[in-house]
Design a binder for these strands. Structure first.
Lengths: 153, 153
DNA sequence: CTCCGAATTTTGACAAAGTCCAAAACTGGA
DNA sequence: TCCAGTTTTGGACTTTGTCAAAATTCGGAG
């Protein structure tokens, strides 16, 4: 993120130490959880309440300054990168999260065959698997994540 | 589900009233939450503990007899229909959930452009929008779901 | 520079969804 | 029918997040 302070002003948000710290924390640690953001913010400004972290993350999300993702079996994660419709790759074993561009194009799967009359505004894609480290560690694709809807081992 | 009892036996699971009731509840109410399953099961057998509902849902999920889906801002939901790699359509306002076939084909987005070295075993797709009822009710695509990563209004 | 009202932060209680654990009850093979 | 092993139960506990009221801070006006 270029200039956190300017970004806040652009969105009519009063600039506070807490908001700057949280915004920078998200910027420094993409896909961090609220807890991780809190830790990182504390390193920067000494102290910030848990509630404030949530308050800030919520406003920033509402304003579209950051984006919240909520993969199964994980607390919400936040990221800096907004407005480019990218998706995510999540490790079933350790939760490591990576960004991936749209697989097919601009807004790939954004059209379901039968929309059941819904007015669709987003197609969210999450790829599940094992990150390189967990593959080497011999993790199997289940312990951390008991789903695995349709794997054909 | 054809024969719940046989299904349990096929998977070496002792047949109990609780397991049958839970399995049938999921069968009758696709996309039900654990709570809803518990209610439905109680109607059938009078009583079942909360823990048992979770126990049963967990074994059934592990065995692949049912599938668990965990959309953002919703407790986990369970469904009968497994092994066909279908996706979901969720109403941001009321949470109503519908099944949708793979948008592009067999396993559509199952290949990310850059897999970051991950061993991918599933591509999960969730379409977010407003169901017909909530559209008529004038719901806007935000109250229930403060995310909306990349809409261009 | 100081003051004030509105917005933000803090503190602490609370809520939802699940899990952990030990005790009691049950399943199903011998 | 009996027994060992599995399930079920009840209750405490954890995690992630929200609510509400009081204290503090921001930032424009004077």
């Amino acid at each position: 993120m270029r200039d956190p302070e300017a970004t806040l002003r652009q969105h009519q948000l009063p600039v506070t130490a807490q908001r700057l710290a949280v915004l920078r924390a998200v910027s420094r640690h993409p896909h961090a959880t609220a807890d991780a953001v809190a830790e990182s913010a504390r390193e920067e400004i000494g102290a910030i309440s848990r509630q404030s972290v949530y308050n800030v993350l919520n406003v920033l999300t509402e304003k579209g300054i950051i984006r919240r993702i909520q993969p199964a079996d994980s607390p919400a994660r936040y990221e800096d990168r907004v407005g480019d419709n990218h998706h995510h790759l999540v490790c079933r074993a350790c939760g490591q999260t990576e960004d991936v561009c749209c697989a097919v194009g601009g807004a790939p799967c954004l059209e379901a065959h039968d929309d059941h009359g819904f007015k669709i505004d987003e197609a969210e894609v999450i790829y599940w698997g094992l990150c390189p480290a967990c593959q080497r560690a011999g993790a199997h694709a289940s312990p951390a994540h008991p789903l695995s809807p349709h794997h054909h081992d």
